[in-house]
């Protein structure tokens, strides 16, 4: 295990991992800052809307379906269907909800 980590630290993929982790950590902090300012009134739309954003995995599904052959292509297709339901349904239902919030 320790050997493996040393190997990782010495390799190129190690630096790309650190780059990814940097982005991950910064985005988490940014997310916390932005989201703590959202009032409880809008917490349900926040959940459905952020849920739609997590459907970004659709991008990965499209890449996989395009690039990979055979069985992986089929898996990619399934992932596209699931992620698209997530994305389209999520944004639409959030829109439907937000339109109901009216002012006096």
């Amino acid at each position: 295990m320790f050997n493996a980590l040393q190997l990782l630290a010495a390799s190129d993929s190690g630096s790309s991992l650190v780059f990814g982790l940097t982005i991950f950590a910064l985005a988490i902090f940014l997310g916390v800052e932005v989201i703590t300012k959202i009032p409880p009134t809008l917490h349900t739309p926040l959940m459905s809307g952020s849920n739609a954003i997590s459907g970004i995995t659709l991008v990965g599904a499209v890449l996989a379906t395009g690039e990979y052959p055979g069985f992986a292509k089929l898996l990619g297709f399934i992932a596209i269907v699931l992620a698209t339901v997530n994305v389209v349904g999520g944004f639409l239902v959030t829109h439907r909800m937000l339109e109901k919030f009216k002012s006096r």
Partner: peptide, 22 residues
């Protein structure tokens, strides 16, 4: 992280943070 795709990492962590706060 698997695909080394930044938009997935950023969006995913935003949603992760949001869910944790809620």
């Amino acid at each position: 992280f698997v695909l080394e795709n930044n938009v997935l990492i950023i969006s995913g962590s935003l949603v992760g943070a949001s869910g944790l706060i809620l």
